[in-house]
């Protein structure tokens, strides 16, 4: 793996001041590359029924999260107004349990109401979807940027840089992810509380994005590094170098565009992981907290006070939403991998 002599030689002879990218020397057009990549993926995904179906479900879920709050406003509900009047919630046998007309879907409350506070479930599911998906997508973006740049740097520069980065990746991978994220989230929140990021419902979102993003890059970085190790020996890299392109320019204009396929595959697979992680953390009570809804927070609400035993529907709504979302993203991830990375094994 460590065949680096020509490159290390180059490294030592190049002036560090040549590090700023010079646009005129790059023969590569990253935009065309990205378009052709997505086009290839689309062509292959179109052929598989499961892939197409999961793509449709993913788009539908996105639309639901974006338009849901609008729809729930049309039905005259919002996720925060509670209604504990005795017409809605039982106050005799099981205090707080929604009465039969309010527990299940109806014209006024499309998914019924919550036990305890009587808030509209559809509105909470839709707003919660916005929160959950925003956290998952942003933290994935953070991990992907970190993982790609760090992994590509390790593979491209080789030698000591690679050795150090690889050891750091090993360390990151050695920590049990959920446990670390769980114990560090409250710590980060105590730091963020007095900053602009830590205001109101922004605090749990910002802290989860930072924590999940920061601890999720190592696996991708390892994959990217492996790809770059072979890429950097290719002619077009040497060509760019001989035209006088700086290392940074080669890294960002030659190397990274060429690993975008693998990056796209792992990004698609990281999204469901992060959706589950948000759900897990909020479920455990360290992520998104009431009154802000998220799918994990709704599961937490279903468990607290054992509401799910008397009102199983209250567990089924966020539970089914979570399963369908994670399943659709997982299947889409498999499809993207089969389309872009046929050599990768199915596991």
């Amino acid at each position: 793996m460590n065949r680096a002599p020509p490159l290390t030689q180059l490294q030592s002879t190049v002036e560090p001041t040549a590090a700023s990218p010079s646009p005129s020397t790059s023969p590569n057009r990253p935009t065309a590359e990205a378009r052709s990549l997505l086009a290839t993926a689309w062509l292959r995904i179109r052929r598989s029924k499961i892939a197409l179906l999961s793509l449709c479900v993913v788009v539908a879920i996105m639309l639901f999260a974006i338009l849901g709050p609008l729809l729930s406003a049309m039905s005259g509900n919002d996720p925060f107004t509670s209604n504990t009047s005795p017409d809605v919630l039982d106050d005799l046998q099981t205090p707080g349990l929604p009465l039969p007309g309010y527990m299940y879907p109806s014209a006024s409350h499309w998914l019924g109401v919550e036990p305890g506070l009587g808030r509209d479930l559809f509105a909470r599911l839709a707003y919660g979807g916005q929160v959950s998906l925003t956290i998952a997508l942003l933290s994935t973006a953070v991990s992907v940027v970190l993982g790609t740049v760090i992994g590509a740097a390790a593979g491209y520069f080789g030698g000591k840089t690679d050795a150090i980065i690889s050891r750091i990746m090993d360390l990151f991978l050695a920590f049990p992810h959920l446990l670390l994220v769980l114990s560090l989230t409250p710590i980060l929140q105590s730091r963020l509380r007095d900053t602009p990021l830590g205001q109101g419902s922004f605090l749990p979102m910002a802290s989860l994005v930072i924590i999940l993003g920061f601890f999720g890059w190592a696996y991708l970085a390892r994959i990217v590094r492996g790809q770059v190790l072979s890429l950097r020996e290719r002619e077009f890299v040497e060509a760019a170098r001989s035209f006088g392109a700086s290392h940074l320019s080669v890294l960002f204009r030659q190397i990274i565009p060429n690993v975008m396929g693998v990056v796209l595959v792992y990004a698609t697979m990281l999204i469901p992981t992060n959706i589950s992680a948000e759900a897990a953390l909020s479920f455990l009570g360290v992520g998104v907290k009431d009154p802000t809804p998220s799918w994990g927070q709704m599961l937490n609400a279903a468990q607290s006070g054992n509401w799910y035993l008397s009102d199983p529907w209250f567990l089924a709504v966020p539970g089914a939403m979570l399963i369908v979302t994670v399943l659709a993203f997982n299947l889409l991830g498999d499809a993207v991998r089969d389309a872009l990375d046929p050599k990768a094994s199915r596991h």
Partner: peptide, 14 residues
Amino acid sequence: SVGVSLPIPVTGLF
């Protein structure tokens, strides 16, 4: 494929 997408909080409570 389905099993890998079942979050523990949902299966556990179920």
